[in-house]
């Protein structure tokens, strides 16, 4: 591998800088920016996925000609990631979507009642 002859592995340095920048952007978006919460969450989750990609492809030698690409069981890794997505999205879908429970649910209902009342008043 030509890469291993170099003193400084440039792809590692680039990956490191990319990770630092993405971490700082995510932190800025969450802490400092005035963006809507939904957009912040979508944005920082995308940044997290990109950073995971940097680790996999630039640090973890996922693609490597010198092993004949025979060292990574792609089907099983895909299986793992698909299961992870199903577990998290499925749990949220089953347990949290459509019905708020606990304090939040009550607050939501109260607000709805108040809104309805104020609409009634304005109607009169």
């Amino acid at each position: 591998m030509a890469d291993s002859k170099k003193r400084v592995p440039m792809n590692h340095v680039i990956g490191f800088i990319l990770s630092l920048v993405m971490t700082l952007v995510a932190a800025w978006a969450a802490i400092q920016s005035d963006l809507p919460v939904t957009w912040v969450i979508i944005g920082i989750m995308i940044l997290a996925l990109l950073q995971a990609g940097v680790q996999l492809f630039m640090f973890m030698h996922v693609t490597e000609a010198s092993s004949g690409n025979g060292h990574v069981p792609w089907n099983m890794m895909f299986h793992g990631f698909a299961l992870a997505g199903i577990l998290v999205a499925g749990s949220l879908f089953v347990m949290s979507f459509g019905h708020d429970h606990g304090d939040h649910g009550d607050m939501g209902e109260n607000q709805q009642h108040e809104e309805q009342q104020s609409e009634d008043h304005s109607g009169h």
């Binding site: 025979g70 060292h71 890794m77 793992g80 990631f81 577990l87 998290v88 749990s91 949220l92």
Partner: peptide, 28 residues
């Protein structure tokens, strides 16, 4: 050596699922 590394990737796939269950629990 190659098989050992491949086996470890399979382990990492299982670790992804382990942490996914914990993330799902946390999110819920």
């Amino acid at each position: 050596g190659q098989m050992g590394i491949m086996g470890f990737w399979i382990f990492l796939g299982a670790e992804v699922v382990l942490f996914a269950t914990l993330f799902a629990t946390y999110a819920v």
